[in-house]
């Protein structure tokens, strides 16, 4: 993949025809796996991420907490998810992302209902085209709700980037790789809380502020789609 000459044309459209504040086509499905207590498949454009939740179940003694459930999160990329085959052994990147994703879910799960248990959340990137951790957060949020785990709110994620001096939402791979900034954000709009932010790149203070503002607007919409998806799944279950 070569670096494009420019990312935004004279009409203000991005390489894939989107406007700067436009997200890729979003698809969400829940209950896609039979064994898991909860599961979800989420797509933003070509990025496809599957999440599964097991638990709460009795915790291993060594990690058990007396006053709350432990969360265990694994973010992992399938070997065929990337341009070149990815070694399936966990990379340093995956270790870090598992941590920040766990920390993005800790504030929304009501863990004190289930002392001495663990709730396992597996996030598998099936296809990667930018924004995998944010799609992973959205999928995990849906899978937790699908598993019936008590939550304070739903979260969703989106990445904000900067190309040709313009802030854009939901980077695809080219925009991520060659853009000037990549700022993944996960938030719970119903709580007005941001549960994950990272910045890879350079932004002014003002741009940083505007990036979060932009993300919150999109995350609001994404959480609405999550709610709709969950409602429909119950409707279907009722009809069966």
């Amino acid at each position: 993949m070569a670096r494009p000459q420019r990312f935004i044309d004279d009409e203000g459209k991005r390489l894939d025809g989107r406007k700067p504040d436009e997200i890729r086509p979003v698809k969400m499905q829940v209950g896609v796996l039979s064994n898991a207590d909860g599961s979800a498949l989420v797509e933003y454009g070509l990025t496809k991420v599957l999440a599964a939740v097991y638990g709460p179940k009795e915790s291993q003694k060594s990690i058990s907490l007396p006053d709350r459930a432990s969360l265990r999160v694994r973010y992992h990329m399938a070997p065929f998810s990337t341009e070149e085959r990815k070694n399936p052994a966990p990379s340093r990147r995956e270790v870090e992302l598992s941590k920040v994703l766990r920390e993005s879910l800790e504030p929304i799960v009501i863990t004190d209902y289930f002392p001495r248990t663990s709730i396992d959340i597996f996030i598998e990137v099936l296809q990667s085209d930018g924004g995998t951790r944010t799609v992973g957060a959205t999928a995990a949020s849906l899978a937790l709700a699908d598993a019936g785990i008590p939550m304070k709110a739903l979260v969703a994620g989106v990445a904000i980037g900067k190309v040709d001096n313009v802030l854009i939402v939901d980077l695809n791979e080219v925009e991520d790789m060659y853009g000037d900034a990549d700022m993944p954000i996960v938030a719970a709009p119903d709580l007005g809380q941001i549960t994950l932010y990272q910045l890879n790149g350079v932004l002014s203070k003002e741009e940083f502020h505007n990036a979060i503002d932009m993300a919150m607007k999109v995350i609001n919409k994404l959480v609405d789609i999550e709610k709709e998806t969950l409602r429909n799944s119950y409707k279907e279950a009722g009809e069966e």
Partner: peptide
Amino acid sequence: FDEQGNIVGAQKTGMGSLSQEEIDNIIN
């Protein structure tokens, strides 16, 4: 930060969460 005051990296670390106002305050 760099010496010009640009933000050149950022990370929330730890379990909790922050509001937009809190993040603005933290940046300042």
